[in-house]
Design a protein around this nucleic acid. Structure first.
Lengths: 299, 299
DNA sequence: AAGAGGATGTGCAATATCGCACCACTCCAG
DNA sequence: CTGGAGTGGTGCGATATTGCACATCCTCTT
């Protein structure tokens, strides 16, 4: 090993003048300093200090290298400062992953706000459903819908923000006509809901229509193609859509805010989490499918 | 303690790309590197490397501090150099780096002489072509072939010793037979010389043969495998080889003797440089490919 | 002169570090 | 698909480092 730690001891003694002062400065025992200096002198094969009764005094050789040792110390300090600065600065990269619909239809104003408040943070938004991103360190913060009461995976810290409800939605005009046949609009792997049958004039076709993307499914519902299951915050907010009368509003999970244990203490991450948490508190009613006062148009 | 040694490990891994390379470079066990990096990451509370199956790759944070770690390493090297430079005794370590062929086939008697004259100097001979060794203080004196008129890099002092010529060589018997097909014998990255075609009965095969090491290339030429470019001092000295008739002898650079500014004034370094310089003066003719009087056997 | 205080050294036990041998995994060629 | 060569990771005994307590020496004060 190359005795860099001993150089640090050397510098401490050179600056403090005595072994004890150096030991105090480095928060170690003074014996450690004595032996460290001994190892360094042996390795360099050179006396670095005159050991006087009043303390250690630099020899010529020691004087020659004290400035270089200072350069090492300077660089070391800058390393710590740089790492600390990375954590605490409100600039630099910050990756957020969340379901696409949350980004486009719910949190976009919130994110715009955040961007305006901290313009030096390079926010990167990754639309995805998989939790892997966090474990992979592909993202720093993740907003996820957790079914059941799942404990966050290893190394991840999570905060439960609010409930998440879904409902059955259909185009408003289709509802008033009361006679048009409608199709089930499903995602790729979804099955036709078996716990509820539409009534009140809606006649379902036997063949469902499947979509590879959530967005096209949503637009198909707005265009009057049929009935689909949507997050309440999406369906209730769209004037083209109404809940199917008699259909249930079901809790289908909770919204969690997940962070990686390594980065959750950095300022950037905390700022973003606080921002999202505050915003989501305001959205809790919409997320749970509760109709706000004044929005009585729906039922 | 402040983990300066761990910074050294970090730098070694950053430069080597893998834990094992770093372990080899620092001459420690690879487990030590893994734990050292672990301690450093824990101390800085930041991931410095992505641990991929193919090796360690720097994270953003790691990239931020690799240059500062380099500054520490630089300062550490200069400390060693400064201390070494104070040592005026004719004993102790002294490292010389030069191309392998120069050591084995030209300067070995000179070095034996030097060793006999100063038996207390622990001479270490490092066969290498890279100039980095000096700046890193992996060596104290370097003998190098400099293409063009390169000024020595920062902090290095250089003396131009003599010219350096190369020629085309082939086995003597192959030449007298005048009918045997021969191959181009090339180093790993060399290309077939386009400025000269062998004539006079030598028929070249289309497929060159490549060698990873200079030595095997040389021996292949001696065994009659084909034609190769060699330093004149090598080719002319070997009775098995002759220059290909009609082939040019080209100047391909100059021989420089390089020393580090901090150590060039020490007695050991000056003694070795003087010794080598004197010897190379006697070799100037051979280096330039000039045939000494009495050696008229060749042309 | 004697003692207090501050300095450098040192024996010994606790602790941390290291090296060896081994494991698991990935990649790639045969 | 299998074996070898590369990678990182880990348990355990050996080794080195550290911290504590104590010893020694010098100086200055009382």
């Amino acid at each position: 090993m190359d005795h860099w730690d001993e150089v640090r001891m050397f510098l401490a003694v050179a600056e403090g003048g005595t072994v004890r002062a150096a030991a105090d400065a480095l928060a170690v025992n003074h014996a450690t300093i004595i032996r460290g200096i001994g190892r360094l002198e042996e390795k360099l094969n050179t006396k670095l200090f005159d050991k006087l009764p009043s303390g250690y005094r630099l020899t010529d050789a020691g004087t020659d290298i004290v400035e270089l040792a200072g350069q090492m110390s300077m660089a070391s300090s800058q390393i710590e400062a740089k790492i600390f600065g990375r954590d605490q600065s409100v600039s630099g990269p910050l990756r957020l992953t969340l379901p696409v619909s949350f980004a486009t239809d719910l949190l976009m104003p919130t994110l715009v706000e955040f961007r305006a408040a901290y313009p030096d943070i390079a926010l990167e938004i990754i639309g995805s459903l998989s939790v892997v991103n966090l474990g992979n360190r592909e993202a720093d913060v993740a907003l996820r819908v957790v079914i059941g009461d799942g404990t966050p995976p290893d190394k991840l810290y999570g905060t439960r923000l609010c409930e998440f409800h879904t409902g059955f939605y259909v185009q408003r005009n289709l509802m008033t006509a009361r006679s048009t046949p409608a199709a089930w609009l499903l995602g790729t792997n979804e099955v036709i809901p078996s716990d509820w049958d539409p009534q009140g004039g809606i006649r379902m076709t036997t063949t469902p229509i499947r979509f590879a993307e959530m967005r096209s499914q949503f637009e198909a519902a707005r265009a009057g193609m049929g009935i689909t299951v949507l997050p309440c915050f999406l369906g209730d907010a769209d004037p083209m859509l109404v809940r199917v009368p008699g259909s249930p509003v079901k809790p289908t999970g909770d919204i969690w805010l997940l962070t990686h244990s390594d980065t959750r203490q950095t300022k950037r991450v905390r700022l973003l989490c606080d921002h999202i948490r505050t915003a989501m508190q305001g959205f809790a009613g919409r997320m749970a499918g509760r109709i706000e006062s004044g929005d009585s148009e729906l039922l």
